[in-house]
């Protein structure tokens, strides 16, 4: 049985406001993210080949001491609570300045799941429910678009 095209990601997919290139600077990514108020931006080569996603949480993390956000699966309690740190705005800005010229490619999140245009809407729902705000749609390694919570909510709520 052929699936109803309405139930596939292709039908809810949208185009991201910006597609970053791997050698764009982190500063330009930060600017785009603040300007468009998006939770994450896709990164792709000039020919459209998908590279990864840059989430806003990464930018928040980079402004803080590294031990506060580093993942350590083996030692779950090696993280400090950090309540004692009294960093000022200037301290936070200093850390972001230190990485502002890094290429975006160095900071992409390898854990972000990717969906195909013909995967089901339900499949996207499961990821979005697991606290993913935005999913890249990739086919033959090419970035086709994104499925965001807004795309899905609009469709389910019959809005627009």
């Amino acid at each position: 049985m052929k699936p109803d095209p309405d139930n596939l990601c292709r039908s809810v997919m949208s185009q991201p406001p910006v597609v970053l290139k791997p050698d764009d600077t982190l500063r330009s990514a930060l600017q785009a993210m603040v300007e468009y108020r998006v939770p994450a931006l896709p990164v792709a080569e000039g020919d459209g080949r998908y590279v990864g996603m840059l989430p806003r949480s990464r930018l928040i993390a980079l402004a803080m001491p590294r031990v506060l956000w580093l993942d350590d699966a083996q030692h779950p309690f090696s993280r400090v609570q950090g309540g004692f740190i009294q960093d000022t705005l200037a301290n936070l800005q200093e850390r972001i300045d230190a990485v502002a010229n890094d290429p975006v490619g160095r900071h992409i999140d390898p854990q972000v799941p990717v969906i195909g245009p013909d995967s089901t809407l339900m499949n996207a729902m499961l990821y979005l429910h697991r606290q993913r705000n935005i999913l890249p749609v990739v086919e033959h390694r090419q970035l086709l678009g994104i499925v965001s919570v807004w795309d899905v909510l609009a469709r389910i709520g019959r809005i627009g």
């Binding site: 001491p65 590294r66 031990v67 506060l68 030692h75 309690f77 993280r79 400090v80 950090g82 740190i85």
Partner: peptide, 13 residues
């Protein structure tokens, strides 16, 4: 060391 090292890293930073 799991308790002391992270604080140390914050101080040295």
């Amino acid at each position: 060391v799991l308790l002391v090292v992270p604080v140390t890293l914050i101080i040295t930073e």
